[in-house]
């Protein structure tokens, strides 16, 4: 919108100064940290333990270059992302579906509650050996009968997807469930007296009313599966991914690669979180303003 007035209000001017200063402060702390890092690394002079930020930057500047015969930064990042997207998607669909079902049905809650409470605290990584034993190294295309698809999908092992699924499922399921159970009774009554049957209530009241909680669950699930993935990729049985590259490089004392991987892991994690947060704000603008 264009303001018809050409003079800016003084208090608004002040606000703008503050916001500029704020975006400036955003860079102050990281900048200082990098400078101190560079100085100490130069003084310390043991790049196999403590590389300079410059050498890390060099790695980051060549994302397409093969590193230690283990693929490039980009290809490993893509492999990791693809695993997470697939594992998370499976968890999202099943988590929301069962959350809706169990949250809206008391006897299902009574039936599955104890089982869920026992499985939930189990660290997803603990499933890894089991998953490897069951699924071996089988990849996604292989279960569809394609031995080798020649695409990046060959990097997606079923065992990995299984473990990521366990990581993301519970936050999604529990938040959906809690969201459903917290739906205001008025909305249900309102829908019922307007003639809604059970199915309509589930899809037109429970689902939208619980959407803020569901999206929160999805956000948590996505962050958690990213966490789990990196750890899972460090375990034996993987030959690609950021976790793999990081672990492999550390074995070869290539600390600048290790730190470059860490930077990417944190940037990708933050972006995934930011993206879902944006989605949450867009989709449930009414949230917290119910009257």
């Amino acid at each position: 919108m264009i303001s018809p007035c050409c003079q800016t209000h003084p208090s608004r001017n002040k606000k703008r100064v503050i916001s500029v200063a704020k975006s400036g402060t955003f860079f102050i702390v990281p900048g200082v940290v990098v400078i101190i890092w560079q100085i100490t690394a130069v003084i310390f002079n043991q790049p196999w333990i403590f590389p300079t930020p410059l050498s890390v930057l060099t790695v980051l500047m060549h994302p397409l270059q093969d590193i230690l015969a283990s693929g490039s930064l980009i290809s490993n990042t893509l492999a990791s992302l693809l695993r997470v997207v697939i594992g998370f998607s499976v968890a999202a669909v099943t988590g929301v579906f069962f959350g809706l079902l169990v949250g809206s049905t008391a006897w299902l809650r009574a039936l599955f509650g104890p089982m869920i409470e026992i499985l939930r605290p189990l660290c997803p990584i603990a499933w890894m050996p089991f998953a490897i034993a069951v699924f071996k190294m089988r990849t996604l295309p292989q279960i569809f009968g394609v031995d080798y698809s020649g695409t990046i999908l060959d990097e997606v092992q079923i065992g990995m997807v299984f473990v990521l699924f366990w990581g993301a499922f519970f936050p999604i399921f529990t938040n959906t469930c809690d969201g459903i159970m917290g739906v205001r009774k008025n909305y249900i009554t309102l829908a019922e007296t307007l003639g809604a049957d059970k199915k309509t209530v589930v899809f037109r009241v429970f689902l939208p009313a619980a959407l803020p909680m569901i999206l929160t669950g999805l956000r948590l699930g996505l962050s958690l599966s990213w966490f789990v993935l990196i750890a899972a990729e460090m375990l034996p049985g993987t030959t690609s991914g950021l976790g793999y590259l990081l672990f492999y490089a550390s074995g070869l004392a290539e600390m600048n690669v290790v730190i470059a991987c860490m930077v990417i892991i944190s940037v990708v994690g933050a972006s995934l979180n930011g993206l879902t947060l944006l989605l949450l704000k867009k989709m449930v603008s009414w949230h917290g303003k119910e009257v």
Binding site: R184, N186, L190, A209, K289, V291
Partner: peptide, 11 residues
Amino acid sequence: LVFQHYTLFPW
């Protein structure tokens, strides 16, 4: 029914 509060679907 018409209530005092939460009488419309906020979404």
